[in-house]
Each structure stands twice: as structure tokens, then as C-alpha cells.
Design a protein around this nucleic acid. Structure first.
Lengths: 212, 212
DNA sequence: ACCGCGATGTATCGCCGCGATACATCGCAC
DNA sequence: GTGCGATGTATCGCGGCGATACATCGCGGT
């Protein structure tokens, strides 16, 4: 999970731990934070697995500069070919793990590199996860409403509204996905009949970031 | 933190582990779930600390029934006097730990037993915590908006809206608190005005559940 | 009568993320 | 030139989670 995040961030450009963490905070935003206590061990593990390697760019560090200590310089991590492969692999799998609370945000953040079909599957999975929770809250709320204290009730209702809001958000996203890449073209968007039958726009990854 | 939750639940009535967990799920709702892997060790710890004891109610279990096994019966946990004391102690402290994401929900759930002043302090602490996060998201969003991919942007904005929504919620709650229990020290209410003064929303003291 | 099976119930283990902490270097203001 | 905050690497202990094992109970099916 952190693995996916690191793979994704590093897929953009090589980074060192510190900056990696900043990006993690910025990109995943409200979803999770991650700390070095997770990051560095993960990095180590991934290095051992061969997904990434250290890339000191140019070794402009004076070689013998601090001979006293264990030589602490910047360590820049960079994806290997296997790492990129691994990233694609993780992007492609849309299992139950993809729509758990913590994981979903990470997957979503890399939707730009994800296959449209997988996107929809993950969004729908997430939605049904949330709907399930919503129903659970609703029923227990209905059953126990009268027995609840004012504050517990308020907490419960706020939680319920949060879930409902998130479901609406997902609905919009799914709607948009479907309109952008419909399983069956409901209408020709342009004057041309599509040469690719709309089901696979593989060579046309949706609007990435980076170079404008 | 689990400790507070257990103390609070058990303050109502003695429970055994299984039901305790159900209540935990129901009461804390969307906030956290907790699993036995946390619950039982915590229970053990609390028992050792003297906050609670086992109370088998009536030992209507046939004493020698299953002599083959290690004799697994229901274990009902019950607060001791020290436990109740400890609960009050925890309710009274409104430190930074009280308004962290996970902890806040638990504290809030027991606001019915909490001193009004402490309630406001916790709500305000929570709010400023959230405002801080909101500003952080806003600024990084403003700085990097153009460089972000469509999905990352959407994720970011959704997160921001969530935080804003929660701040609004807290504002309402604080407002209500202030109206119900104004900062001016309340005069002795016992005397002759039998009906409440200006403001009489349904609750005056925190309407508890359970035993009337 | 019997079995099966799901709900109830107690308990533990390994994994992993977090927060705190230590240590080191760099750049810049004073 | 010195102190201090940002940058940077790394580890440790704590605590929660999910999976799992094991045990009992009540109920319906055959």
C-alpha cells in the first residue's frame, strides 16, 4: 500500500526519502500521512525486492568529506525496470483491497495512469463498500435512535451524512467515467465514427501532468 | 483511547467482550472499529490496573460441565470504583490528544457525561486542528493546482470539502454549546423560576440514556 | 434423534504504521 | 562565526488490525 504510493511517486521522477514524504503528504492529502517509521523500512524492502535502486545522480559529494561518521549523504531512490513493471501490475489489480478506506485514496491518486475499466471497477467497489456501511449505520441508528444520548446521536448522524456525501461523490465520478469512456458508445461524440470502438483508448492516456 | 471507550461503555452497564465490541462498533460508528486483538489485551491491562473486575453475575453455569477443556465461560467485565474514578479523570482532561482524529470521536460519544466547559474546549481544539489542516491543504493546493493531474486534483478538493464540512459541523456544535451553557457562571437554578429562562431547547442537562 | 451451521464468545499472533527520537548537514540571518 | 530552523536518514517501542483458533449455543432441516 505504501509500496504502491512509493512506486507511483517515483514513477514520476527519482526522489530522496524526505521529499518522498512531502509528496506523500501533499498527494494523498487528507488520506493518511505516513511517517518515516514506515517509509524507510518500506524503501529498504523494495530495494531488496529489486523494485528500486539508489541513484546518487552525480557524486558531487566530496568523497572523503566526513570521514568520522558513517558517511550520511542524500540517497536518491529511482525505479528499476522491474519496479515500473510492478507498478503497472499493482495499478491493474482491482481487488477488495483496492477500496478499503486507506488504500482507495492511493489508488485514486494514480488513476491518471490506470486503465479506465479498472478505474470504474475500483470506484464501484468503493461505492458498494460505502453503501454497505451506510446501510449498517442506518439500521442500527433506526433501531437505537430512541435510546441514544443527544451527542451519540449527533455523532451517528454526522457520520451517516459523511458516508452519504462520499457516495454521491463516487456516483458523480462513475458517471463521468462512463461518459468519458462508455462501454458502448451511446452516441458519436464527433462527426467521425470512431476508429477505435471506444472500449479501449490505450494509446491515449487521459491528460497527465508534467509537461504542459 | 480504547481505554476511555471501554470505561465509558462499561460505565453504563457490565458487559462481556463480545457485546462490548458490538457496542464499540455501534457507538463509535464511522470512527474506528477496534478488533479483539486490541480489545482483549486492553481489557487485561485494565483489569491489572484495577479499573475493572470480572463479574460472573450469577454462576448458573454448571460447575463441572466441560471438565475436558479449559472451561471457557462468559466473562463479564464491570467497572470498579477506581475505574469510575479513572473515567471521570479521563473525561475531564482536554489535552491535544483529545482532538486527534481517532480520539475525538470517543470523547464526543461521552459528552453526555462530560463537563460543559470541557466539551467546548475539546470542540474548539478539534476545530482549530481541522482549520490548520484545511489551510495546509488550501495552500499546497493553490501552489500546485496547475501541476496536478485531474484525479489528484479531484481527490484534493474532495478532501478539502470534507474538512470544511466538518468545521461547519463543529461551528454549529460550539454555537449550540455556548447557547445552552453560556460562559457566565450559572446562577443557582434551584430557586423559584420553575420554567427555564430565555433559551429552552429540549435538553438542559445532558439527557442521558439508560437508567432515568 | 441427529447433524450442521451460523451466531455468540474468548483469546492470540504476526504485521505494519505511527509518533518520538537521535543524529547529521546545510543555508541564512544576526 | 554562531546559532537555529529546514533538510535529511534512520530506528525503536507501542499499539491497533486482520486472521485465526477454539469453544458453545440455538435453531432448522431431514
Amino acid at each position: 500500500m505504501l509500496e504502491l504510493a512509493v512506486l507511483g511517486l517515483l514513477h514520476g521522477s527519482p526522489l530522496h526519502g524526505y521529499e518522498l514524504r512531502q509528496r506523500l503528504k501533499a498527494t494523498l492529502g487528507t488520506f493518511r500521512a505516513f511517517s518515516y517509521g514506515s517509509l524507510y523500512p518500506t524503501l529498504r524492502g523494495m530495494k531488496e525486492a529489486g523494485w528500486l535502486c539508489e541513484d546518487d545522480g552525480n557524486a558531487d559529494v566530496v568523497a572523503g568529506a566526513p570521514p568520522l561518521t558513517g558517511r550520511r549523504g542524500k540517497v536518491v531512490y529511482k525505479l528499476t525496470a522491474e519496479g515500473k513493471e510492478r507498478f503497472q501490475e499493482l495499478l491493474a489489480e482491482a481487488g477488495p483491497t483496492s477500496w478499503e478506506d486507506e488504500t482507495f485514496g492511493v489508488h485514486f491518486a494514480f488513476f491518471g495512469q490506470t486503465d479506465p475499466e479498472v478505474r470504474v471497477r475500483i470506484l464501484e467497489g468503493r461505492r458498494s463498500r460505502l453503501e454497505e456501511r451506510r446501510e449498517s449505520v442506518r439500521t442500527t441508528l433506526a433501531r437505537t435512535r430512541s435510546r441514544l444520548d443527544r451527542y451519540t446521536l449527533q455523532l451517528q448522524e454526522h457520520g451517516l451524512e459523511s458516508v452519504e456525501r462520499e457516495v454521491r461523490w463516487l456516483n458523480e465520478l462513475i458517471e463521468t467515467e462512463r461518459r468519458t469512456a462508455p462501454p458502448v458508445a451511446p452516441r458519436s461524440p464527433a462527426s467521425h465514427p470512431p476508429r477505435s470502438p471506444a472500449s479501449h483508448p490505450p494509446p491515449q492516456p487521459p491528460r497527465e501532468r508534467g509537461a504542459p
